[in-house]
Simulated scan of single mutants.
Amino acid sequence: MTTPANRPIRVGVQIQPQHADYATIRRAASEAEDLGVDIAFNWDHFYPLYGEPEGKHYECWTMLGAWAESTSRVEIGALVTCNSYRNPELLADMARTVDNISDGRLILGIGSGWFEKDYTEYGYEFGTAGGRLNDLGDALPRIEARLGKLNPQPVRKIPVLIGGGGEKKTLRLVAKHADIWHGFGDPEVVERKVRILDQHCADVGRDPAEIERSVAVESEPSELGPQLLERGVSLFTVGVTGPDYDFSLLRQWVEWRDKTNG
């Protein structure tokens, strides 16, 4: 079976780099690859998002460079990079470098940013949600342009994943720039977002089938999986956190993927 967009079902894991030693995080990434996940993500924050607010935490892109060496098959990326933290041209160069280190396995996940503590503690201007989205809209063409100038080039055209569900700005940026859209919510919410994304695609002259739809999942696949498939979702990502990375739900999604894909 395939999704309505004729895409195979894929499963990702977000290994949240909080409350754990790096050796444990590295083992989790290797275990996820051995389990057969399609993509191993981390996230781009400077502090834990939940649990002890001053707990252990590691930086996103240095970790992706390490994962590029410590894994060999799985795609890797951030879910998602905060656009505010790095100059767009620098981010493009970082992405190109990690893509080459990994032999073409990087996904460039990006969003506008939202976690105020990261901004205030590290000296970035938080501004407004609308302003941060405008900044993302300005940055994406710059990233694309820089990727085209770098020597050596990326191993492949790096897939761009944009995370977020804002209906007026974010989903329009997805329609214009993304290869993957990542969202959140129950099937009814996802259905609404997909419908709006499809309209944005029509407005900018983009075939919506070109965009893979990804959703974060927190429950078992038996009911949720088919409902999301009907709404065009083909990438399902399970989040796991430290200090102990529990893959029990992830294993269920991998088994469901294999059974459903046939």
Score class of each variant (00 low, 15 high):
Glu191Arg: 14
Tyr22Val: 06
Glu188Phe: 15
Pro187Arg: 06
Gly131Val: 08
Glu89Asn: 07
Pro243Ser: 03
Thr128Lys: 06
Leu228Phe: 14
Ser84Arg: 14
Ile15Gly: 06
Thr120Asn: 12
Arg27Asp: 14
Asn151Gln: 09
Lys168Cys: 09
Ala178Trp: 04
Gly242Glu: 07
Asp93Thr: 15
Ala29Cys: 08
Pro187Met: 10
Glu125Ala: 06
Asp34Asn: 09
Ala20Leu: 10
Asn134Cys: 03
Arg146Phe: 11
Ile107Leu: 07
Tyr122Leu: 09
Glu69Met: 05
Asp244Arg: 01
Pro141Arg: 10
Asp93Asn: 08
Leu235Arg: 08
Pro226Lys: 01
Asp179Gln: 14
Val98Ala: 02
His182Pro: 03
Glu116Arg: 14
Leu171Gln: 02
Leu133Val: 11
Ile196Cys: 04
Val240Arg: 05
Gly131Cys: 01
Glu144Asn: 00
Thr260Ser: 08
Ile143Thr: 06
Arg132Ser: 03
Glu191Asn: 11
Tyr119Cys: 00
Asp99His: 09
Ile76Tyr: 08
Val37Gln: 10
Ile76Leu: 05
Pro17Cys: 10
Thr81Leu: 02
Gly242His: 04
Gly165Thr: 13
Val74Asn: 05
Arg86Ser: 02
Leu224Ala: 03
Ile196Pro: 13
Tyr119Arg: 00
Tyr122Gly: 00
Ile101Gln: 02
Ile196Phe: 12
Ser84Asn: 14
Arg195Cys: 00
Arg195Ser: 14
Val11His: 05
Thr3Tyr: 10
Gly77Tyr: 04
Gln18Arg: 05
Pro208Met: 05
Glu33Met: 06
Phe115Met: 07
Asp258Gln: 07
Gly55Gln: 09
Ser112Arg: 11
Ala40Ser: 05
Leu229Met: 12
His200Ala: 03
Ile9Asn: 00
Ala95Asp: 06
Arg156Gly: 04
Ile107Ser: 07
Ala68Phe: 15
Tyr245Ile: 11
Ala175Leu: 07
Val217Pro: 08
Ile9Asp: 01
Arg132His: 03
Val74Arg: 08
Tyr124Ser: 05
Glu230His: 09
Ile196Ala: 02
Ile180Gly: 07
Phe236Thr: 05
Arg27Gln: 15
Val215Gln: 04
Asp138Ile: 13
Trp67Gly: 00
Leu173Pro: 08
Thr81Cys: 04
Leu133Tyr: 13
Cys82Tyr: 12
His19Thr: 14
Leu171His: 03
Lys149Ser: 13
Ala202Phe: 06
Glu167His: 15
Ile9Trp: 04
Thr120Asp: 12
Arg142Gln: 11
Leu140Gly: 12
Arg86Thr: 04
Val238Ala: 04
Gly12Tyr: 11
Gly185Gln: 08
Gly109Glu: 09
Phe126Trp: 13
Gly239Gln: 11
Asp38Gln: 07
Val204Gly: 07
Val194Arg: 07
Lys56Asp: 07
Gly127Leu: 10
Glu33Phe: 06
Glu144Ala: 03
Ala29Glu: 02
Asp38Ala: 00
Pro154Gly: 06
Gly36Asn: 06
Arg251Met: 12
Ser70Leu: 14
Arg27Leu: 15
Pro88Glu: 01
Arg27Asn: 10
Asp246Glu: 08
Arg10Asp: 04
Asp118Pro: 10
Ala209Trp: 07
Pro226His: 12
Ser84Lys: 11
Trp43Met: 14
Ala145Gly: 06
Val215Ala: 01
Ser112Gln: 09
Ala202Asp: 09
Gly185Leu: 12
Lys56Ala: 06
Asp138Gly: 07
Lys117Ile: 15
Leu250Lys: 00
Asp118Lys: 00
Ile76Phe: 08
Asn261Gly: 01
Val11Met: 01
